[in-house]
Simulated scan of single mutants.
Amino acid sequence: MGRGVETRELLRAVLERQPLFELLESNSASLAEVQAELDVSRSTAHRVVKQFESAGLISYQEGRYELTPLGYMVAEEIRGATKTVAVAQRLSPLLPTLSEEAEPFDFTAFADSEVATPEAGDPYRPIRRLILKINQVTALQELSPTIPEPAYLQSLFDRVQDELCASVVFSRWVVNRLQKSDKVALEEAISTGSLDVRIDDPVGFRLIIADDCVYLIGYNDDASRLRLVVDAHSADAYDWANTYFRKRWDEATPYEEEYEDAIQ
């Protein structure tokens, strides 16, 4: 049997017995404690620890089992991979567009995020959370491939008249539509100096950074229907989002350059 096959079988066994490794990461354990953690017979518990002992992942010292340095490393890698896969499953509608971006996406940063999806008869439920958030924050950064919902857009325009400072990157198509439908409100908001708009090629998802909260919003292929809103509060999520936003912001064209006569 080749080494690659042996390694895959060992990883499969570790994944199957992950509760054992979680137990031993925090402390050593007796055979009885291993048996209770795995909820198996004593003979099965003994066979399991012997398997990992022979693989060099577990050692037996003074009547108790503990992880070896190799065991700690394998346990950490398995835990990280499990978390990444779990996050990827929750964010699956966003994966096609995230995978196309040059900035690597940090899945683990969104491990504790909340995911909201439209409900039958209430397709804008996730967006109402965003509107509530906008009415509370003082700083906002946004990348949007589509025209924001009317209620969201109105809240944005109203809040920059007050104490919100916002930096927004819209696609050229979105700005052209706003020029037709909300030109006066848009340019009044920009004229306050608290709304800075730039124009760039559209991204495949919507990103909003509201103070230290990060929102990823996924749409269908033509960005006409909302599919999910991801709400993350970790420092790592903020760092990833801020880095990605600043890169797109620096590449975008200021609104005033695109529409030289728009702002007087």
Results as ranks from 00 to 15, higher is better:
Ala13His: 05
Tyr72Arg: 11
Val87Gln: 00
Glu76Tyr: 11
Ala32Trp: 02
Ala109Cys: 07
Tyr124Gly: 08
Asp112Ile: 01
Leu195Met: 02
Glu103Cys: 12
Pro104Glu: 01
Arg8Met: 12
Arg125Gln: 13
Ile199Gln: 00
Leu130Asp: 07
Ala210Cys: 07
Thr7Gly: 07
Asp231Trp: 12
Leu164Glu: 04
Glu53Cys: 11
Ile208Lys: 06
Thr82Ser: 15
Ala55Ser: 14
Tyr259Cys: 00
Gln136Leu: 13
Arg172Asp: 04
Arg79Pro: 02
Tyr238Trp: 14
Phe157Cys: 03
Tyr215Phe: 06
Val229Cys: 09
Tyr238Met: 03
Ala232Pro: 03
Ser54Cys: 04
Gln136Arg: 15
Val34Leu: 09
Leu24Glu: 11
Leu186Pro: 06
Ser59Gln: 13
Glu187Gly: 09
Val49Trp: 13
Ala189Gly: 08
Val115His: 08
Pro69Gly: 02
Lys83Ile: 10
Ala36Glu: 14
Ala116Tyr: 08
Thr108Ser: 14
Phe205Tyr: 15
Tyr72Asp: 10
Arg159Phe: 08
Arg64Ile: 06
Leu11Pro: 06
Thr7Asn: 12
Phe52Cys: 07
Leu20Asn: 04
Val48Phe: 00
Ser92Cys: 03
Asp261Met: 09
Asp261Ser: 15
Asp211His: 09
Arg3Gly: 00
Val74Leu: 05
Arg90Ile: 00
Thr97Val: 15
Leu195Glu: 03
Ile190Cys: 10
Asp162Pro: 00
Ala232Tyr: 02
Ala116Phe: 05
Leu95Ser: 06
Gly71Tyr: 01
Asp122Phe: 11
Glu22Val: 08
Leu153Lys: 05
His46Ser: 15
Leu15Ser: 13
Gly2Asp: 14
Arg64Gln: 06
Leu195Ser: 10
Thr192Asp: 04
Ser41Cys: 06
Tyr65Gln: 05
Ala55Asp: 12
Arg129Asp: 13
Asp106Pro: 08
Thr192Asn: 02
Ala29Arg: 02
Asp211Gln: 11
Ser224Met: 02
Ala88Pro: 02
Pro254Cys: 01
Tyr152His: 15
Arg17Ile: 04
Gln161Asn: 14
Val87Ala: 08
Arg129Thr: 06
Tyr255Ser: 10
Lys180His: 10
Tyr124Phe: 14
Ala111Asn: 08
Leu132Cys: 09
Asp212Gly: 00
Leu94Gly: 01
Val229Phe: 07
Asp212Leu: 09
Pro123Arg: 02
Ala32Gln: 09
Asp236Leu: 11
Glu103Gln: 05
Tyr72Ile: 10
Asn176Tyr: 04
Glu100Ile: 04
Arg128Ala: 04
Tyr60Lys: 04
Arg159Pro: 10
Ala237Lys: 05
Gln35Cys: 05
Val169His: 04
Thr7Pro: 06
Glu16Val: 09
Gln18Asn: 10
Val184Gly: 03
Val160Glu: 02
Asp112Glu: 09
Ala55Arg: 11
Leu156Val: 13
Glu251Asp: 12
Val184Ile: 13
Glu163Lys: 05
Val49Ile: 13
Asp158Gln: 15
Ser171Arg: 01
Thr117Ala: 12
Val40Arg: 02
Ser194Thr: 07
Asp162Glu: 15
Asp211Asn: 15
Arg159Cys: 11
Phe107His: 10
Arg129Ile: 04
Arg129Lys: 15
Pro118Lys: 07
Pro93Asn: 05
Pro69Leu: 00
Asp182Gly: 01
Ala29Thr: 08
Leu11Gln: 06
Asn242Gln: 14
Ala55Thr: 01
Ile134Phe: 09
Val34His: 03
Ala32His: 03
Leu67Trp: 01
Arg3Thr: 12
Leu186Arg: 07
